[in-house]
């Protein structure tokens, strides 16, 4: 599996290209802005952008959707529709997403937003703003905070410990590090 990270200018938000190294089918995970580097990378690596997956409906993760849709015509997948001004296929907890030979599983991780999704492939999980390295995404009340932490414990911390955790802002981590050292959980 190919995973390539891009930090965008808007709020230093992260976008990721995930791809099947054999079929070259690719997915963009979060689209805070159109970025020429992403298109260049897809071209250079011979990757075909088949899907866009959005973790949650905040502008720093969605404002680039329309541009990518216009240029690549991928399938848009998220937990809400419309999103970023585009109609989306809605997925929910437990659904699976195929990407070439790869299969990703959707987990519901709300709290930061009412609908928040995490996408897990073998060895890699994309959490959006639910979980950060050593932190968690902001919530607006104690109930949402507790909901978010419970979802992370139940769905992310139960993944294999060496799974790389790719987050919406800041550096990546691992399940083991976040379980053992994230100050919000220990």
């Amino acid at each position: 599996m190919i995973v390539k990270h891009f930090m965008l200018n808007v709020h230093e938000v992260n976008s990721f290209i995930a791809a099947d190294s054999e079929t070259r089918d690719a997915m963009l995970i979060d689209a805070g802005d159109y970025d020429e580097r992403i298109e260049q990378y897809l071209n250079d690596e011979g990757l075909n952008l088949k899907k866009i997956f959005i973790t949650h409906d905040h502008y720093d993760h969605t404002d680039g959707i329309a541009d990518y849709m216009k240029r690549f015509h991928p399938e848009l997948i998220s937990g809400t529709s419309p999103i970023g001004g585009c109609e989306s296929q809605i997925v929910k907890h437990g659904d699976e997403i195929r990407l070439g030979r790869l299969t990703g599983k959707i987990y519901s991780t709300p709290g930061h937003t009412p609908v928040g999704l995490t996408l897990a492939f073998l060895g890699h999980v994309f959490t959006g703003d639910a979980l950060f390295a050593g932190s968690v995404g902001g919530t607006s009340n104690p109930r949402d905070y507790n909901t978010q932490l419970a979802a992370i414990r139940q769905h992310i911390f139960t993944l294999p410990e060496d799974t790389l955790v790719h987050v919406g802002h800041g550096p990546s981590s691992t399940v083991a590090i976040e379980k053992r050292y994230n100050p919000f959980f220990v």
Binding site: P171, I177, N182
Partner: peptide
């Protein structure tokens, strides 16, 4: 910059003059 240092152990480590902008040395 933006390095993940969560749970890192660094007794007597020397970070003098380093750039730790937006790094994550929690815990």
């Amino acid at each position: 910059k933006r390095a993940n240092l969560v749970g890192t152990k660094g007794h007597n480590a020397n970070f003098s003059g380093a750039n730790l902008y937006y790094s994550r040395p929690g815990n």
